[in-house]
Every structure is written in C-alpha cells, then in structure tokens.
Nucleic acid binder design. Structure first.
Length: 470
RNA sequence: GGUGCCGUACCCAAGUGGUAAGGGACAGGUUUGCAAAACCUCCAUGCACCGGUUCGAAUCCGGUCGGCACCUCCA
C-alpha cells in the first residue's frame, strides 16, 4: 500500500517515507482538560485515528503519543486573562486536579465510544514539568531566552526560520490588532516559556524552577513530551488547523532551537467542523458534545460515519439534517452487513474480485486519507452481486480495519424493551385477533389508536411487534 | 489591514485538464390485507458569476460576488 500525505510545511501531498524503515513515530496534540470535548474536537481525533489505522494497514508499526494538557493555561497567550483550569474549577466547585481527572476520563470515554484507538502514550503535562524545565534550560544555555517581568520568554529573533510552517510574514503581521501586546516582550511574537509573575490565582498548580515558582508556558509541553517519547526528530505531528500559526509555529522554534535538528518530518492538520454560523467552539453558540448527540438519539458511530463522509482537509458542515443522513446511511450499512453475516463467515483469503475492491479502497485511503472515496468503494463492493457473501464480508472487514465503524463487532441490540403499558398490549392483542378474522377494517382502526398513543406496530408472520415511537 | 481555504443537485460530499463518485432525502415500482422493512428504478448537458487559455475546463489563468478560518486560548 502506497501512502502519501499532505504536509503543511511544503503545502503539497508528499510520498510518505518514515525516518525509520518500518516504524512511524506520531505525535497528536491532545485535549486541554478543563471542559468536555465538543464534536469539533472529536472530528480531529477521528481523522487522526484514520491516519493511524491507515499507517498500520500499510504495515508500519506506529508509536502514537498524545498529550493531555492538565496544566492551567491562561485564556490569553500573553500575561493577562484568566486561567481556564481555575475558572472551570471555581465553576464546578472542585479542585483543579479533580477537574483534570474528570475531563480526562470524559475525553477517553468519548474517544472509546467513537472507536478511536488509544494512544500508546497519553502523557500528562503535570507529570513532565521537569522535562519542560530541562528543555527551557537548554534553550537558555543557547541564548534563545530572556527574562522580563519575572517570566522567561523565547526570543523569536534568535531563530531565523521562525514562522516557516505558517508562512508568516513577520513584517506585515499586525500583532496586537485584536489584543494588547504583553509589554514584557521584546518582539510581539515572542512567547512565554515559564511564568512566575502572572497574576494567577491558582496556588495549587505551581512548581519550583530555576526562574522561580510558577508554571510553564503552553507550548513547551508538546516539545518536551514529544521529544521524550519519540526522540528529537520524528515523523508526524498532527492537530487541528488552528494550531499552525501559533502553537505549532512556536513548538518548532523552541524544539529546533534547542536541538539544532529538524524536528518533525510531516505536519498533518485537520480542518474544522463548522455549522451555519461558523466554527463549533467552546465559547460560541450551542456547546455540542457527543453526549448531546446521544441524547438526541444518535449512536457515536453515526458521528464517526458522518466525519468519514468528508475529507479531513475540508471544512465539514454540521447540521442535524446531516446527522440524520449519516444515521440512515450507517444503519443501512449495518443492516446489509448483518444480512451477510447470516449467510456466511468472512473469508480469510479473498477472491481476486473482492481483493481488487480492497486494493482500490487502500488506494483511496493511501492517497492523503480520502475516506469519502473509500466509502464509495465500500458501497460498490456491497452492491456487487458477483461476489460471494463470505468474500464480501472479508473485504468489508479489511476496509473497516481503517474506517473503524465496528462492522465486525457483535451486534449490540440497543432496542431495549421499554415497558409497554398493558392497555396498549391489550389493543395489540385485539388487533391480532381482528387480523386473524380478516376484519381488516377493525385492525386498521386499532393500528391508528395505538400509533396515536405513541407506539409503532410492525407485523411479522404470525405476530406483531410493538415499540415506542422515538 | 494581512494570510489561507472554499463556493458541485433538495441536503451532505468526492472529483486538480478528458467529458460529473458516494450517502441521505424525494418520487415511481415490486412485495406484504394495511403499515413498516426489503429490493429495483429515477434523481446536475452541468459544477457561484463573467471573461481567457486549450481539440477539450468543475478542474488552469484573470476578474467579480459570496462564505469560512487564522493573525487572540481554541481541534
């Protein structure tokens, strides 16, 4: 399987060649655990999961590392603003560590529900403060830092390639166009590595350091932890597209300034999920989480299926109508798979025709993760009556190894029996009797009554199933 | 003000020079007393608009209009 990926650094699709022959080292920016993940966040993790599964399907051993940001960071990249962890902790009346634990659990609960493979290493920022301090010391020794107003800053003017990822034009950037510039900074684009004198109110999350008691800047954790677990140069770094201009730009500066080596080979960024009003965010509009979707009757897999319908580098438009479409489409798929399962067991060796569908599918996924095309191939396979059920199922399972829709997992019969009132059951009985007597006029009357009461009747040979209308 | 992305049917969405994938909805049909399910069929001579290049353009170039994102913590 050939694999090519769009590299933000070169702005082109490049053939993928890892630094080590059969091993891929991948770092994904993880959640900041001061709140639930919203479905926009989750879209990015779905894309990263597709990337990982594609790499594995291509035969690579993957080491997947993700950070969990449990250090409080300010609502502002400068020295102002409120600490988000503290803010959340106050609102919930829990201490910051409890907040972090609660939202970390919630995060993995959601990603598990979406069948997203867990990273091999999920590292907490609070457990790597020493690594961050060591990295800052390294930068300090090389003259990339300065102390001002009690904080340690990275001086971007000491790093000639600053902004290469985002293609920032430093002359023309209007820093401070929308916010006030931190007056401690020599260059408005400088960023803090360590804070000691912020007016933080968080007395819990502070650590001792050579520069005084305080806490790390928000970019340093990713550099420190990724290099700790993946080495000073590794293959893939991914995250949301919003990270390009600031977070990843700063990570590159501090990482490469410290080591003097190229840091990351491929930068892969996922586009945003948006709705009619713009991006889905934590501070704007309705806060859409996976739980909200589930409360509205959607299965987490419906959301995964929905995400797979668009390309990861395109904005995807969320609407309830689209979710309905995704649910219908996925139910249709599951139904067909169930029918195949009843006919045959999945073949372990595929016939040539089935294999050619799998190859076509792999070609699409290998071509910068074109999941929508892959899905189209899956539907054509399903429709191809020249392929025997066992081969069809075997091919489907291979495709699903990447799609992760859980097609091979045993059917969980979700339709749990909600208690049907005995009045309704009595009406159903009466209707059955009318049916047997071929009194269809009466039977239809009874159907109307029962349906009006909020129950759906489905006739099967000899009996009738009752279920509550959603 | 700067930068980037985008505009494809009723909805979502692929498609980067060779004559519009796929899903959903809708409609028609087969079948079942009815209903549901299932199955079959149908669904863009056209890809925001206007010019240009080309044998050929949704795809390339120029312009216009519209949307989104980033330059602020953000997936």
């Amino acid at each position: 399987m050939n694999l090519s990926l769009y590299n933000t650094m070169s702005r082109t699709v490049e053939a993928f060649e890892p630094l080590e022959r059969r091993h891929v080292r991948m770092y994904c920016c993880g959640p900041t655990v001061y709140n639930f993940a919203h479905i926009g966040n989750l879209k990015t993790y779905v894309f990263e999961d597709i990337l990982r599964r594609t790499l594995e399907a291509a035969g690579y051993r993957v080491t997947h590392v993700m950070n969990v940001t449990d250090v409080g960071h300010l609502t502002d990249d400068g020295d102002e603003g409120e600490d988000k962890m503290v803010k959340s902790s106050k609102e919930k009346g829990l201490d910051v560590h409890e907040i972090a634990r609660m939202y970390t659990d919630a995060f993995f609960h959601d990603t598990d529900a979406l069948n997203i493979l867990r990273p091999h290493v999920a590292c907490r920022a609070t457990e790597h403060i020493e690594d961050m301090i060591a990295l800052i010391k390294r930068l300090e020794a090389k003259g990339h830092t300065y102390v001002a107003g009690g904080n340690v800053y990275f001086s971007i003017d000491t790093f000639p390639d600053y902004g290469k990822l985002a293609k920032l034009n430093l002359e023309e950037l209007k820093s401070g166009a929308r916010i006030d510039v931190d007056e401690n900074k020599r260059n408005p684009k400088d960023f803090a590595l360590w804070f000691t004198k912020s007016k933080f109110e968080n007395q819990v999350m502070v650590w001792d350091s050579p520069w005084g008691v305080g806490y790390p800047g928000w970019h340093i954790e990713c550099s420190a932890m990724s290099m700790k677990y993946l080495g000073e140069s590794f293959d893939i770094h991914c995250g949301g597209i919003d990270h390009i201009p600031v977070h990843h730009t700063n990570e590159i500066a501090q990482s490469e300034a410290a080591t003097g080596k190229p840091w990351v080979k491929y930068w892969v960024h996922g586009e945003f999920l948006i709705n009619e009003t713009g991006k889905i965010s934590k501070s704007k509009g309705e806060f859409l989480t996976l739980s909200v979707l589930q409360e509205k009757g959607f299965d987490p897999m419906d959301f995964r299926f929905f995400c797979l319908g668009g390309h990861y580098r395109s904005q995807l438009v969320f609407s309830w109508e689209s979710m309905d479409a995704a649910r219908n489409g996925r139910r249709n798929l599951v139904r067909q798979v169930r029918a195949l399962k009843e006919q045959a067991a999945a073949s372990s060796v595929l016939c040539a025709e089935a294999q050619s569908y799998v190859d076509e599918f792999s070609g699409h996924l290998g071509n910068d993760l074109n999941a929508p095309r892959g899905l189209a191939t899956l539907w054509s396979l399903l429709k191809d009556n020249s392929i025997k059920p066992g081969d069809k199922l075997g091919a489907l399972y291979r495709m699903d190894g990447i799609l992760g829709l859980g097609l091979d997992s045993p059917e969980q019969e979700k339709e749990e029996e909600t208690a049907i009132p005995h009045q309704i059951l009595a009406l159903v009985e009466e209707r059955l009797k009318a049916k047997r007597e071929k009194n269809y006029h009466r039977a239809d009357e009874l159907r109307a009554i029962v349906e009006k009461a909020g129950y759906k009747l489905t006739d099967t040979p000899g009996t009738t199933q009752v279920s509550k209308t959603l």
